[in-house]
Design a protein around this nucleic acid. Structure first.
Lengths: 249, 249
DNA sequence: TCAAAAGTGTTTGGGTTACACCCATGA
DNA sequence: TCATGGGTGTAACCCAAACACTTTTGA
């Protein structure tokens, strides 16, 4: 064994922080570990990278195998490589996050039902996860928070038709701050990224809201030009309550 | 050889994009490759990661061995893992950038003088570099550009004493846009991140400028609280000329 | 006295914030 | 008729942008 081959004793993996949005709360998809190490703990979905496989391909594969979803938003965040992060050997992992529409889970793949489960992000952050997955989750959540201020990626998490209030709640869940309803609507509508569908919610026990659709064409123009989403925290007490409920769960 | 060991045929490396600032231009430190592959081409400094070495440790080691510098600004940017990125095998590399003060290079280490050289970033981006180092350089330059809008890391690139004009030229070189002199000064001074040294430039063939020092204490407060640097491009023609000179070199 | 860069204030406009009440629906 | 969330406008404020001339030094 020559000297260089000493460097070929390590493995790469990817871990994928899969975010979803449901019931007004930001969720992350976790898997219960059935084997050692960390048997019984929740972990991020991930896998070793095949020798002939690109990084993003591996991240998409993990997502596809677990959820059956393809072509979803995927972004590399950070590599984690502490020497002792994996008890069985040196494994450097590259963390990605994905944004999926929980509404797309019409059929639950069998591989999924067995051990994967959506968790509230806030609650997951408070539990002990396997490996260094708490670090990874925190880093990816922060990356999502930063991203959402700069690109309107939030739409990736919503069903095709949604109300402005749902959109606002999504932003509040990601930014973890209450937003002023009127200012939020003004700002969002002024971007002309939404198509008014001239449809209404049905069967809700209150005044039904208008439904909107995301305008992908305009979005791609924004992507090229740049974009800024900045709304400061609203100071009214009523609006803060929602957020505390979400965060403190 | 069992199945899992197939995954242990790859290697990790780090590459470090070392930025400096000199003569009003942003520079990057490149190494001329003396061996195949890509013999004779310029490349980013990098190395394989030792089995018992953390990622950041490896990046710092490369920096130390090359420049003799320690404790400089270092930030992980992105992992590059295209299957064919290295002709001799599967090597996934993790890219970092560092910010160094060229003024600290009082003694040039012997390892340095042999083959390392500062290049204008703009010119380096136009050349063909070894491996996928053009991608890596572009990505790291963009990361620096984004960072500088959010954190005042520019100071890491300047000597301990500097003038406001030098600082402005640094920002212009990184952002690749001309800035309005009066607005720039107002903005920077309003942050109270500079200590007025009550000293002047000497021996310059024009009115000497005041020298300032960076206020590290206040900076660390900003780091905790958050920070925003946003100045739009100035539209005056005089100020644009500088930038075109820099970019077109 | 000339060249070269330093230094300095004010006005204007656009965008963000704060804020409260009426409306439509189902139960 | 009540509870629940949907939906709307305006005034005050702040910050960013635009902009031109005087000053100081060395050559």
């Amino acid at each position: 064994m020559n000297e260089v081959s000493n460097f070929f004793k390590s493995a790469f993996s990817i871990d994928n922080v899969i975010f979803g949005f449901d019931e007004g709360d930001l969720k992350v998809l976790l898997i219960k570990r059935g084997t050692e190490p960390y048997k019984g703990l929740w972990a991020l979905p991930g896998d070793l990278i095949y020798p002939n496989e690109g990084l993003e391909t591996a991240a998409n594969r993990v997502l596809l195998e677990l959820t059956g979803l393809q072509k979803v938003y995927l972004e590399q965040v950070h590599a984690f490589g502490a020497v002792d992060r994996h008890p069985l050997g040196r494994v450097i992992t590259i963390a990605y996050f994905s944004l999926v529409k929980i509404s797309d889970f019409v059929v639950t793949p069998s591989s999924f039902a067995q051990k994967a489960k959506w968790h509230s992000v806030a609650k997951a952050q408070e539990q002990t996860l396997a490996f260094d997955h708490n670090d990874i989750l925190d880093t990816c959540f922060d990356a999502l928070k930063s991203k959402v201020r700069v690109r309107p990626v939030g739409f990736e998490l919503l069903p095709p038709k949604f109300t402005l209030t749902e959109l606002q709640h999504l932003y509040e869940a990601i930014l973890r701050t209450p937003l002023d309803k009127r200012n939020f609507r003004k700002k969002i509508l002024s971007m002309h990224l939404l198509i008014d569908l001239d449809e209404m919610q049905e069967g809700v026990p209150h005044r039904p809201a208008k439904l909107y659709q995301f305008d992908k064409k305009r979005y791609h123009k924004f992507e090229a030009e740049g974009f800024s989403f900045e709304l400061k925290e609203s100071k009214s007490k009523d609006q803060k309550r929602r957020i505390e409920e979400i965060i403190e769960g």
